[in-house]
Amino acid sequence: MNGPTTSPARRRAKPSIRAFAGDRQASSQPLGYVLLAEDDTELRRLVEWSLEEEGFVVHSAGDGRAMLELLEAAARDEIPLPDVLVMDVRMPQYDGLDVLRALRLSRWDVPVVLMTAFPDDRTLEAAKDLGATCTLSKPVDMDDLVRAVSIVHDLARERELLRSRVGPPF
């Protein structure tokens, strides 16, 4: 992931895009379920608040281990299955890439948005190989994050629809 087009500073969602897969009608139904893992309490609260403002229901964890516990709770139907995961890369206990690796090992293809203050090539390459949908560099603009999560959420629904009709893309 070298070169000017993929440098860390450019790994940000862009505002001027519009997806059509999502239903943005006013409704009491949540837009979707997000699991968040971030060890910085202040940033965690800010992300929670921003996503909840948009209409997502957010369950959050302060480290990778707590995120795995949330995922296990979701697998046991104790909390709703997440539509999108948002994770910091560097966290105590298991980091975001460990959790992502565990997800893929479990054949769970929920879309994942990563945030990192250290967007070096090695991290970005690992994130890509494990199927992270996008990696946002910190400091993360909350508008960018909400847009990224919304688009990833909408497109994941589109992906599911497609699979149900024509099978998975090759």
Partner: peptide, 21 residues
């Protein structure tokens, strides 16, 4: 648009790579 946005869209629509033990 930023090229990474297009990459993000492509990845969001593609199947995530699954791992074996």
């Amino acid at each position: 648009f930023e090229l990474d946005t297009l990459v993000c869209v492509a990845r969001a629509l593609a199947t995530a790579p699954m791992l074996e033990d």
